[in-house]
Each structure stands twice: as C-alpha cells, then as structure tokens.
C-alpha cells in the first residue's frame, strides 16, 4: 500500500441515473507507467476527474499518496494534462512562458508573487520538453505537438511525483507523436515520475508502459504489459462488448 501513488477502492459513479463506473479497484505503484485503456465513453475521463477531485466521490474511496482524496491538498504533487488542453482557446494571448508558469500558481499560493527562483523553474521545465526557442511565442502560434509539450511543461513545473495525461495525443500530428512518447518515457525512466496515460489506442504505447488497465464501466483487466500481451482476443472482445480484431473507435 505504501508504494501506491494512487489507490482506488470500490469506486462506483453515475451521472444522474446512468452508471459510468462500477466497483473499480485499481492501484498505481510508484514509478510505474500505466496505460488506462478503454473505448470512448468507457468512463476513463470520469475516473480521472474523480481522482483529481473535480467530481464528487460518493461511493468507494480514492487515496493519493496514502491520503484520502477528499482531504488531499498537495495538488502540486500531481501534474494533469487534460483532454481539453488540445482544444483550448488557441487565440488566447499567452506566451509559452506564461502558460508554463500557471503550473506553479497553486504552489505559490494566494497573495504571493512569482520570484526569480520560480522563473528559473519555469525555464527548466520548458527546457525539459525542448521548447526553449519558443519561450516568448504565443501558445496559439505553436503546432499541436508543441502545444502539448507546453502543457506537459506546465504540469512538470511544480515538480510532481505523478503525472496524469488524458488522451494527450488527440490532434497532434503523427510525426510529433513519436517524439512526444519519447518524452514521456524519459520522464518516467529518468525523472522517476509515475505516469498515468489515458488512451483509447494501445498500439503506439505498448512498448512504453509498464502496466495496463482496461476500463469499460468496469475494470476488465489490470496487470503488467506482459500479461496484457498474453491476453487472447476473446478476453479483449468481452472487454469491448463485441468481437474485436482491429481497434474500433465508433463507440458512443
């Protein structure tokens, strides 16, 4: 238990009457890289929102770094790159520097200002994701892949131990996706950051992640990558609710 960054116990959640998540149990060990896999509408984003305290939890419990999510305050230990990050208002007049600084605001706290040391950390985070030369560019002028890197830097700047990415490659051009995953791998292996990657496409990340969790209302599979690869088509089909050969993204 101690080495779990996230532990989800018996979580059930419904939007109004419609059940979205049923009895989810999931542990994320420290230093692991988990792919949270599921078709659209499978409750992945809902689970993440519960985890971040963005939705109220009524049934079951979630612990972050051993502390109940309802009492958790150390949000700077968690970096979050939302799905919305790639559909943000791209006309927003903010430089990469300004966007990345936002990641520190929670840590700096109310009635306090950014100091020189904060600015240095922002620059460091920008360097980590390789956007140095775009520091003073408006975020809207960057490519999709670069924008996503800026959002990663924003999540990194508060020095998080856990980084959660919700479908981060949607809208990112294919050529930058590889670089992007390379960056995630480096963050996990070299910086020791625990990663949770929400995705509906396992293909490109199979070699990257250490653990896989398949979610479709219920948790259908949870194990390391090796076990996942040994799962046969029948099991995969039961997870998607219909025969599966290639990935099908037409779910509601």
């Amino acid at each position: 238990m101690e080495s779990s960054v996230v532990s989800i116990n018996n979580v059930t959640f419904s939007y109004q009457e419609r059940p979205v998540l049923e009895k989810i149990n999931l542990d994320v060990p420290e230093g692991s890289f988990l792919a949270l896999l599921g078709p659209n509408g499978s409750g992945k984003s809902t689970l993440i929102k519960l985890l971040l305290g963005l939705l109220p939890l009524h049934q079951g419990s979630i612990h972050l770094f051993g502390e109940n999510v309802k009492k958790f305050r150390a949000w700077h230990r968690i970096g979050y790159v939302s799905q919305k990050a790639n559909s943000f208002n791209s006309g927003f007049p903010a430089t990469v520097f300004e966007v990345v600084s936002m990641g520190l605001f929670g840590k700096i706290g109310m009635f306090r200002f950014m100091k020189k040391s904060h600015k240095q950390r922002v620059m460091q985070a920008i360097q980590t994701v390789g956007l140095d030369e775009y520091t003073n560019q408006n975020i809207g002028e960057l490519s999709g892949g670069q924008q996503q890197r800026a959002f990663i830097a924003r999540a990194l700047v508060s020095d998080p131990k856990l980084l959660i990415l919700d479908e981060p490659t949607v809208g990112v051009d294919a050529s930058s996706v590889d670089d992007f995953y390379e960056l995630l791998k480096r963050l996990n292996r070299e910086h020791g950051i625990t990663l949770v990657l929400v995705t509906h496409d396992m293909g490109p990340v199979t070699d990257l992640v250490t653990h896989v969790a398949c979610l479709n209302k219920r948790l259908h599979f949870h194990g390391d990558t090796h076990e996942y690869e040994n799962m046969d088509n029948r099991e995969l089909s039961s997870f998607y609710g219909h025969p599966v050969h290639a990935m099908d993204h037409q779910h509601d």
Binding site: G53, H76, Y80, K84, F92, V99, M102
Partner: peptide, 9 residues
C-alpha cells in the same frame, strides 16, 4: 485560461 486546471491548482 483553464478552469479545470485552476480547480486542480
């Protein structure tokens, strides 16, 4: 810029 992020922060 981002209401969700503000809440997380």
């Amino acid at each position: 810029f981002d209401e969700d992020q503000a809440q997380v922060a």
